[in-house]
Design a binder for these strands. Structure first.
Lengths: 221, 221
DNA sequence: ACTCTCGCCGAACGATCGCTCGGTCGGTGA
DNA sequence: TCACCGACCGAGCGATCGTTCGGCGAGAGT
């Protein structure tokens, strides 16, 4: 899988030392209240979490928490906004660095999606399960972000089919299945589990390729 | 593992007129209070739904609702129990009727899973999103049911690989991806959408086959 | 006629919800 | 020295939560 990770044609004007930064995931950098809300939301959901519990997890009193965030809803929105901009940014950079070939771009988004849903598991999980808890105003904005992410995958798959690299008869459905598979990782993956991140990426990349009907996978005939 | 289902030879003792009943989905048959709870849970989640709202949707007063169900939690459990036994039953029958070949059994479970997640969309959705809202006692039982469903798919994929029908290098991961893809349908599918059920089944069956590396995918559907 | 059960409800219980009022406290700048 | 500001909190607001109490009326059994 290694040769598929970085583009074969080293074109681009990007400074080499900054290449692949979209792969780096350090400790989560989140304001204490948001980190507290994240942990609680991931465990019990938005409506299952009380403001008092978030405050306690953040080592704050309830008014202390409200000093930083005006409402419980704003905690959720702040969380999802950071999550989405991080995900979108990483995906865009990954694609941009992958070069022009749809196959390479495909590997890049899929790897980026997978990494994010492993290393930012809780964020990704809350981001996909608590959409219905968002106030109407922000919900449409957020769904717009999600659609943009899906469209990034869609367009690469379409391009791959047009270029003859992907053989699937149903590009749209295959693309959705790829995204679904990646998002699904956040529902069961554990960083200290039996499967390490790189191995899982390698396997699911192969599965994703199979979904779009990529030719040069490990099968015979 | 395959012959453990029922028939040793693949057909015979099943009355032909009852064949394929696992494909039939009429109107949802649910006690009014459960149907009310289902609609509310699907829209706003368990913790986002009040007992008063469920009662109102069921055209009952709150004590009237409690006359039939002892608690809010029992509504959720009753709902998920019916959902799971329906799903498991249909899957088992579908596999049993499919005969001995792993390929046919695979098509059968996948079709059954897909149908269920389309025609029982709300049930399936609540069943996969509200696990964390279950009380500890029943939660483990329910997860056991889920695991059993996943294992049904796993074992068929393993058998298919052993028989040489499936070429995937990662049967376990492919099997999980197949299930994830089917479950994911419940998050976006609309019965009156642009894609009708049969067309969607046909497409996603092809995608599922691709995931496990099934060879002869070329036929029209 | 009487009782009993069944299906149901108005009213209200204590607990908890999201949120706010009116502060205290340790800096910082003038 | 002192006014000021940002960070924080104890206490409590009104509302809503899941749940229960005591009762009502229709119908079946005797």
């Amino acid at each position: 899988m290694l040769e598929a990770m970085t583009s074969g044609t080293g074109d681009t004007d990007v400074r080499p030392e900054s290449l692949g930064q979209w792969r780096d995931y350090g400790e989560v950098e989140l304001p204490v209240p948001l980190a507290a809300a994240l942990a609680a939301f991931a465990e019990q959901g938005y409506h299952g979490t009380s403001v008092r519990e978030i405050a306690a997890r953040a080592n704050l009193s309830v008014p202390g928490l409200y000093h930083h965030y005006p409402s419980k809803q704003s905690l959720l929105q702040g969380l999802l906004e950071r999550t989405m901009s991080d995900l979108l940014h990483r995906s865009e950079v990954a694609i941009a660095e992958a070069g022009d070939r749809p196959v390479d771009q495909f590997d890049a988004v899929v790897e980026s999606l997978l990494r994010f849903h492993m290393y930012r598991r809780e964020q990704a999980f809350v981001g996909s399960t608590e959409i219905r808890s968002l106030d109407d105003g922000y919900k449409s904005t957020y769904i717009g972000h999600r659609d943009r992410q899906q469209r990034m995958v869609d367009e690469i798959v379409f391009a791959g089919v047009e270029a003859g690299d992907f053989a699937t008869r149903y590009p749209k459905d295959a693309s959705r299945a790829v995204a679904t598979m990646c998002v699904g990782v956040s529902t069961w993956f554990k960083l200290d589990g039996e499967l390490d991140a790189d191995e899982l990426i390698s396997r699911n990349l192969e599965l994703a390729r199979a979904l779009v009907g990529y030719r040069a996978t490990g099968d015979l005939a």
